[in-house]
Design a protein around this nucleic acid. Structure first.
Length: 380
RNA sequence: GGGCAGAUGGCAGAGCGGUCAAUUGCACCAGACUGUAAAUCUGGCGACCUUGGGUCUACGUAGGUUCAAAUCCUACUCUGCCCA
């Protein structure tokens, strides 16, 4: 077994834990937040900026990169890392989320998914094999199985069918992954890891079955997919809690698409190690900033004459240089800097939050720190 | 001095007898956003009343016609353009 992931410390009161993921492009301390860079870039931010915030790994999206720039450019660029000038770890989503978010443009079959390009309507066929091969070509450090992220709400029967299809696809992804490894089509210099994805909507027994069978197949890590897609919060956590006991201790667990600070604390308590979300960047572009005293909408009139920083102790480039009043002004006059500053700030917030969490777990103070955070965050 | 056109809610600008408290855009106020078709989308935006809904004050000013006027008529004020 490789030393891809190692648990460093288990919390005594909860299932929270700290750990470290080792890839050939660097180590990742967990729990970790991974900013989303769908098209090979975390929207509005440069690589040096991301590094300055302490970002250790970013997400890219195989579906979007498959459409543009496409295989040829990626091949000529010698992989995604050199193409986008990011030499740290990258995790790619396989396109399974697009099966959900671009539902109106696709048709699912046993073999795969036929998309009508959301850009020009042309037909694109994606399958477990194709997406495994493409993610291999991208040369990403962690790749995801091609899954079907199910819709919400969804009937039990459909959730079951969808979950079972995802299992069959996972098997094919893994077989393709092994085959490419054997044929040395995968670089031996840079190790790649493959994660399985658990589905089953909000049905606990389906979730458990999905987790158990995915774990039986054996992957480098396990993701919880198909949640935070509109279901009530309690159902989301019921689904999560149904699944967690099925996962092996020594493999990383990744909650796909989870991003509010309260939710992240809750999921870490349940034993999750990895997170990604568009929230810090998308909401940032739309004027929302996370602070330890709650979220604020900087566009609101009350900040027009507020010359204090977003968050006194933040230290990000936005807080270090600009006032709420000025950022409020930037949004009103629609300057690009506005969305950039809040994206920087929000990513910084989540990166810092994770370090607070890791610290708390290391010191055995997870529960206290969580309560303290939630109390202050929801008071604001 | 004469002729023509026009004056509508914060701004621009529809409406040209009842279905108009008045289309739309901007501005303004608020909300949403969770593996990004998103620098996007939604709602509110005369006042008052307890909601469905109702009441009042409103389309330059003052009168008038009409069951009914932002819409028609008269005068006035102002603005723009043209001719002398």
């Amino acid at each position: 077994m490789s030393d891809f992931f190692r648990v460093l410390k288990n919390d005594s009161l909860t299932s929270a834990r700290t750990g470290v993921i080792k890839t050939s492009r660097g180590e990742i301390k967990t729990p970790v937040f991974m900013p989303v860079g769908t098209q090979g870039t975390v929207k509005t931010l440069s690589v040096p900026e991301l590094k300055s915030l302490g970002v250790e790994i970013i997400l890219n999206n195989a579906y979007h990169l498959f459409l543009r720039p496409g295989m040829e450019v990626i091949r000529n660029a010698r992989g995604i890392h050199s193409f986008i000038s990011w030499d740290k770890p990258i995790l790619t989503d396989s396109g399974g989320f697009q099966v959900f978010s671009l539902a109106q443009f696709r048709k699912i079959s046993e073999d795969g998914v036929l998309f009508r390009s959301h850009m020009d309507g042309s037909k694109i066929f994606l399958s477990p094999e194709i997406m495994t091969e493409f993610q291999t070509l991208l040369g990403v450090d962690i790749m995801m199985c091609f899954d079907e992220c199910s819709d919400y709400p969804i009937t039990y029967k459909k959730a079951k069918d969808s979950m079972e299809l995802t299992l069959r696809w996972a098997k094919r992804c893994k077989e393709k992954f092994r085959e490419l490894e054997k044929n040395s089509q995968r670089s031996t210099l840079n190790s790649q890891f493959l994660f399985g994805i658990v589905q089953g909507s909000v049905y606990s027994d389906l979730r458990r079955e999905s987790a158990r069978k995915t774990v039986e197949m054996g992957f480098d890590g396990y993701a919880i997919g198909g949640l935070s897609v509109g279901e009530p919060r309690n159902e989301m956590f019921d689904a999560l809690n149904a699944v967690m006991p099925e996962f092996p201790e020594q493999k990383p667990r990744y909650f796909m698409g989870l991003g509010t600070p309260e939710d992240i604390w809750e999921a870490i308590e349940a034993g999750v190690d990895m997170f990604d979300c568009v929230l810090p960047t998308r909401n940032g572009r739309n004027g929302q900033a996370f602070t330890f005293d709650g979220k604020i909408n900087i566009k609101n009139a009350q900040y027009q004459n507020d010359f204090s920083p977003l968050d006194e102790k933040c230290g990000c480039p936005a807080c270090g240089n600009y006032s709420r009043a000025f950022i409020n002004h930037l949004f009103k006059v629609k300057e690009f800097l506005a969305g950039r500053l809040l994206s920087l700030h929000n990513i910084n917030f989540l990166i810092k939050l994770m370090s607070v969490v890791r610290d708390a777990i290391s010191k055995g103070e997870f529960k206290d720190e969580k309560d303290r955070f939630i109390k202050r965050y929801s008071a604001g």
